[in-house]
């Protein structure tokens, strides 16, 4: 899932300071699961904004809504009429949601209320960790299921580097050395040979280096 984190309240307040009526657009997808952008988060943020604006003597009207997914135009197009009654939309979805709004409901400006962080999963309740960098050429097959691109601070293909110590990364003792994990898992699978091969340089064209990426599913094209 996509994991996002709310922007600081001051930054949000500054970004909507010119508006008296906004729509606070939550999302029922990933960001609901990670607590940053669901209907509950919207309710909380709306009260915080209203209180702050009241203190400033600049009251603000906020319409809250939570489409099932902000990143699919079928779910947001029905809000077209409501959009026309507001000056701006404050989106607490991921960056994809914000852009879907901008492209499909351009009548109002859409402002991000979240910082989209990564693709990951909750390793325990309320703790999410990055797992995938969307590099476009999956290596998990030979790494025993641990991703060095998303999880190694140097994106090494032939790790671990000399900074791996007691299973931790030199960059932060709270980060596990993914190359230690790769090593241990392959050892357990009796596949340490995977690590004796010198892995060649990655073709980064599959990643974010060759312009915007597209996927076309021919069989489903209308």
């Amino acid at each position: 899932m996509i994991v996002a984190d709310r922007k600081p309240l001051d930054e949000i307040l500054d970004s909507i300071k010119d508006y008296k009526k906004i729509m606070l657009m939550a999302c029922g997808g990933c960001v609901t699961v990670c607590f940053s952008g669901g209907s509950k988060a919207a309710g909380l943020l709306a009260s915080q904004i209203k209180m702050a604006r009241k203190k400033q003597g600049k009251a603000i009207e906020i319409i809250e809504c939570t489409p099932e997914r902000q990143c699919e135009y079928e779910f947001i197009d029905e809000l077209k009429n409501d959009i026309e009654s507001v000056e701006a939309v404050l989106s607490i979805a991921c960056g994809v949601g914000v852009q879907t709004m901008s492209e499909h409901l351009p009548q109002a400006i859409t402002i991000p209320g979240l910082n989209t962080k990564f693709m990951g999963y909750p390793v325990e309740h309320a703790l999410w960790e990055e797992r995938c960098a969307g590099c476009g050429d999956c290596v998990l097959g030979w790494t025993g299921g641990y991703c060095p691109i998303a999880r190694c601070a140097k994106k090494l293909f032939n790790g671990p580097c000399g900074g791996s110590s007691d299973g931790k990364c030199e960059v932060d003792k709270d980060i596990e050395c993914v190359w230690q994990l790769i090593h241990d898992r392959l050892k357990q699978l009796n596949k340490l040979d995977n690590l004796t091969v010198v892995r060649g340089p990655k073709d980064w064209r599959t990643s974010t280096n060759a312009g915007q990426r597209k996927i076309k599913f021919e069989e489903a094209m209308l």
């Binding site: 032939n158 671990p160 580097c161 000399g162 900074g163 791996s164 110590s165 007691d166 299973g167 050395c177 230690q180 090593h183 241990d184 340490l192 690590l195 004796t196 010198v198």
Partner: peptide
């Protein structure tokens, strides 16, 4: 090239040197 005999995992350090 460099190698760090004191980093972990210790037993892999020799494999990495060979690499």
């Amino acid at each position: 090239a460099v190698e760090n005999p004191f980093a972990d995992p210790f037993e892999f350090r020799v494999m990495r040197l060979a690499k």
